[in-house]
Design a protein around this nucleic acid. Structure first.
Length: 853
RNA sequence: GGCUCAGUGGCGGAAUUGGUUUACGCGCACGACUUAAAAUCGUGUGCCGAAAGGCAUGUGGGUUCGAGUCCCACCUGAGCCACCA
């Protein structure tokens, strides 16, 4: 028999499937139950598909084919995350327009996807750089704008003075420009934000970004990462009075400054005179020996007249300003800061005056931008105190049996702060309380005194969506001298991205250089106005694409309500773990906005989420072009075929595990497929004498195993089950056509080409042996017969004290008493017992007997 | 530092969720076919031991008739986040 020629056969069926789109399209009009199986749409890079793409796309392809054959109406689309920085940078490097290279890359991606035999519904393909698509990205911007969820504010951006461009954080690592190596500076720019922080907690009937996680089937680690990113912390906020060294200085300043605007005359009533701090550890407040303030904090400027070392302070502030956040983080090793001499703050609990320092490890944008410093019980404060020789006081004692880290002579001997909860000491009337009790009592006291309150803070900040870049969706806003900021009317969408713009970096948003693009009439008053020149973050494009697949051609809406109701939410979403935070969080935000505004009736977009594990190169390192260890799908397909590559990647290990490529391993799969191919010669079409009971029973067990494991995405064990069945069939002289066809249907979801070819060579047998001319993918998934997988006899394991001492062949439904009698009278067991009386005999039905002596 | 996960043969990995540890595949060894090799097929393959048997799921304890699986402590590794008060 001819060997299996994967090249010829795979090409043949890919051509056939391309002509028979009806096999894989999602049916808008079908009444069958839907199943939405989605891949994260890829960024079409010039490098083409990599091993990780193949892995996750094969997984969803198998699941999609499985559900289709189970009668579900499956939506399995694919599209392109085409806008973005990589394309623009590549364009700048090669001086080719990003649209051209994006088109080229998409063509290549699509060729490779077809080469892998993926059953996408290409009739729903979307591309984020297509005006028909980004029209709706802009519409979403306006939707948020009109509902008060998009706003403009000043924000810092990484700026490379040499390249004259804004850099993303990952391009400015270490505080230097990725491309030219010059130091990055912080530049204040007016930028657009989305109010994602509005959706952290539940809103009316819309679940929040935190609590919504409880009802979806996502990996624990991903949920944890999202929660961690949101960073909710509960504590208290309170004010501390700021005093000058002498009240006299203060009075004179007050008189001088408040000439024009009448302020309350009472000293200390001015806002500037209070330092507001946030803490989660109010129980440690008696250990506060100084306070810290962010250098950017505006209170510092207000205190300027009272600060006696202003020159020093100003120098520190300007040094901080130059540093990017990344540089600050890189300098974690050593704390820096400067005392604001001439002022002190009053700890409201102890009434003591303590010094105030500005330090760049205090973040201006988190909490109140100032903190109480408790060096005894906070590691960062501890390091700061050591450096500036500030007093350290113990106010929390570990609950026994842990010994206190304070050894005798105060802070000099202390190695690090004790940061856990404990029992209060040196805290006046709060002594003896546990940390938890103290926090409660102290918060109550603050509220009673009117100087503080219970407060919740989040790390999550609003989403900055402006990009001073070319290759993105333009922000649909117009600036008019008379009317101010005016949204582009919906009927004027899309705001087209000009194709003839110079996208080389020049120090401003590239769109600002196009007069044709910029100069417009104000939609409100008709006066000359100009367009917003910034584009949107690509994450905006990818936050809603899964809605578009439901109704990709709709010109009136991003998707009709009817189609959204039919197809959404996504039942299974598979993609890389690098999107654990941003993409997934932003998508959830968009979904929650739509839910709140009544567009959809669900508030979580992805019901079940899984990440494919990284596939490492053969050398155990990450695949990378520079290391020259990349496994390109094309060459593997060339040598072994797409079916072999698909199955091998599924066989390597659990979908979510990190796996190492091993070229030797693929021959196992290759051999398996070759054996499947050869099996044809054993097929007997006659019904007589070919109903092999054992094979039939094993086949039905396999059907059960494969069905269950595919639903749980345990593809590696499915393939092992295929091999077990095939190995058993190989030992037989003849194989029934019915058995073989059912096996082929199971296999077709994993190895579609070879299955389709054998199916057609066999004369397209349906499972009932009726000849049909159809593709194997029109077949129904086989069902298993419970009676056929029931074992009649089992191997009963007999243990003595938990150790296997005998195995008896007994009827599967043996009763307890009989099993025990049989075991105890077995000659081998008798020998082991040597006359000893069993203390106890355990019986596990269908499994074992354990004799305890 | 925080969170999340993992540790089973020479290797990738199975294990009915508390019940025969090592399925399936790779590799290796021996054999068949061949002038020979490749391919293919067959047999074997956790460790110690001649055998009887004993010992094995990172380490140490615990719960249990019984633990890879559950609990506690520790060791090692990975991924993500990280000066968030």
């Amino acid at each position: 028999m001819a060997k299996y020629n994967h090249k010829k056969i795979e090409a043949k069926w890919q051509k056939y499937w391309a002509k028979h789109l009806e096999l894989f399209v999602a049916k808008d009009k079908s009444k069958a139950e839907k199943q939405y199986v989605l891949d994260m749409f890829p960024y079409p890079s010039a490098d083409g598909l990599h091993a990780g793409h193949v892995e996750s796309y094969t997984a969803t392809d198998i699941v999609s084919r499985y559900w289709r054959m189970n009668g579900k109406n499956v939506l399995h689309p694919q599209g392109w995350d085409a806008f973005g920085l990589p394309a623009e940078n590549y364009a700048i490097k090669t001086k080719t327009h990003p649209a051209i290279m994006t088109e080229r890359a998409i063509k290549n991606f699509k060729r490779q996807m077809n080469m892998m035999g993926f059953s996408y519904d290409w009739s729903r393909e979307v591309k984020s750089s297509d005006p028909a698509y980004y029209k709706w990205t802009q519409w979403f911007f306006l939707l948020l704008y009109k509902n008060g969820l998009a706003y403009k504010a000043k924000a810092k951006a990484n700026w490379c003075p040499k390249c004259q461009t804004v850099l993303a954080n990952e391009q400015a690592e270490g505080g230097v420009c990725e491309r030219c190596g010059s130091p990055v500076v912080q530049k204040d720019l007016e930028q657009w934000f989305f109010k994602i922080t509005d959706f952290i907690e539940n809103k009316d009937r819309t679940s929040g970004l935190i609590s919504g996680l409880d009802k979806i089937d996502w990996p624990e680690s991903t949920k944890a990462a999202q929660k961690n990113w949101i960073g909710k912390s509960e504590g208290a906020q309170f004010r501390m009075r700021v005093i000058a060294r002498s009240e006299a200085t203060k009075q004179s300043r007050d008189n001088g400054n408040s000439a024009g605007s009448p302020r309350p005359a009472t000293a200390g009533a001015r806002d500037d005179d209070y330092l507001e701090v946030f803490t989660t550890r109010l129980d440690t407040v008696f250990g506060m020996t100084f306070a810290l303030i962010a250098p950017e904090h505006k209170l510092i400027q207000g205190l300027k007249p009272q600060i006696t070392n202003w020159g020093e302070v100003e120098k520190y502030i300007s040094e901080t300003k130059k540093k990017s956040e990344l540089q600050r983080i890189a300098e974690v090793k050593e704390k820096t800061g400067v005392e604001l001499k001439g002022v002190k703050v009053i700890n409201p609990f102890t009434k003591q005056a303590i010094p105030l320092f500005a330090s760049d490890f205090v973040l201006a944008h988190y909490g109140t931008g100032a903190v109480m410093a408790v060096p005894g019980h906070d590691q960062r404060d501890f390091e700061f105190a050591k450096k500036f020789k500030l007093p350290i006081v113990e106010v929390i004692k570990p609950t026994s049996p842990q010994p206190s880290p304070y050894k005798g002579e105060g802070w000099v001997n202390l190695e690090k702060a004790f940061v856990e909860d404990g029992v209060l000491i040196n805290s006046e009337k709060y002594n003896g309380l546990t940390s938890e009790q103290a926090r409660e009592k102290m918060t109550q006291w603050l509220e009673k005194e009117g100087i503080g309150k219970r407060t919740i803070n989040y790390k999550l900040r609003d989403w900055l969506v402006s990009r001073q870049r070319y290759w993105g969706a333009p922000i649909p806003i117009i600036y008019c001298d008379k009317c101010g900021e005016v949204p582009v009317p919906e009927k004027d969408l899309p705001v087209l991205l000009p194709t003839d713009v110079d996208f080389m970096p020049h120090g401003e948003s590239p769109l600002a250089r196009s007069k044709k693009f910029q100069d417009v009439k104000c939609p409100r008053c008709g006066a000359p106005a100009r367009r917003e020149a910034d584009t949107m973050d690509t994450f905006v494009c990818s936050s809603w694409y899964y809605f578009r697949y439901a109704d990709p051609k709709n010109k009136k809406e991003f998707a009709s309500k009817r189609m959204l109701k039919k197809w959404l939410p996504v039942d299974l979403y598979v993609g890389g773990a690098e999107h654990v935070v941003l993409h997934l969080l932003y998508s959830r935000f968009f979904t929650k906005v739509l839910h709140k505004l009544g567009y959809i009736d669900f508030d979580e977009p992805f019901l079940k989420l899984r990440h494919q594990g990284i596939i490492l190169a053969e050398d155990g390192r990450k695949m990378s072009k520079s290391l020259g260890n990349v496994i390109a799908p094309d060459s593997v397909v060339e040598q072994y075929g797409a079916d072999a590559l698909r199955m091998f990647e599924m066989f390597m290990g659990p979908l979510e595990d990190m796996k190492q490529w091993n070229t030797k391993g693929i021959v196992g799969i290759s051999r398996f497929l070759e054996k499947v191919w050869k099996m044809k010669s054993k097929i007997q079409n006659k019904e007589s004498g070919i109903k092999n009971k054992e094979i039939e029973s094993l086949l039905h067990k396999t059907i059960k195993k494969v069905s269950e494991d595919v639903e749980m995405l345990k593809f590696n064990t499915v393939i092992s089950a295929f091999m077990i069945l095939l190995n058993a069939m190989e030992k037989e002289e003849n194989i029934s056509l019915i058995h073989y066809s059912k096996f082929l249907i199971l296999l077709s979801s994993f190895a579609p080409h070879i299955a389709e070819e054998i199916w057609s060579q066999l004369g397209h047998p349906s499972t009932k042996l009726r000849v049909s001319k159809k593709s194997i993918f029109t077949e129904k998934w086989p069902e298993y017969d419970k009676n056929l997988i029931k074992e009649e006899t089992i191997e009963l394991v007999v243990q003595i004290n938990g150790k296997v001492r005998a195995k008896l062949s007994v009827p599967a439904d043996i009763f307890e008493q009989e099993a025990k009698n049989l075991s105890l009278s077995d000659s081998g067991i008798k020998k082991w017992l040597a006359g000893k009386e069993p203390k106890k005999v355990i019986f596990v039905k269908g499994r074992l007997v354990n004799i305890v002596v």
